[in-house]
Amino acid sequence: MKTPQEPRAQEERREFREEAESLFRITFAPVIWAAHFLLCYCTLAVVCAKGGDPDFWRTALVGLTLVALLAITWTGWRAWRQWDAHNTGDYANARGEDEDRHQFLGQAALLLAIISAIGVIYTALPLVLVEGCR
């Protein structure tokens, strides 16, 4: 375990204060999954019902998938930094300190980013595998 703790104590205390944090932030990645899911489903439902080229839209949605994955990766990366277990060596964050809460929310957001990325990839499989509107 590295020991970067000493010099940053005071200034980072401020970063860990409650107002800088929101429970909603851990839901960013799942919200991206939900938006991606709905856009895929609704676009192809409308295209199949009202006419349009499903293959064009499938390709477009694969592009959207890449954007969604990028956004989730960015969320996950930020969460990874926030968790900071690599530096602190604390993987459980079970104590009642500002810092623990801060890192815990980072870990939760990271895990949710991973599961959301898996969800987005799963959703994209039919885009690649299923043709047309039958």
Partner: peptide, 13 residues
């Protein structure tokens, strides 16, 4: 009778 691709999304989820 929904299109197979729609079913695919829900199957995946």
């Amino acid at each position: 009778g929904l299109p197979s691709i729609s079913l695919g999304f829900f199957s995946a989820a």
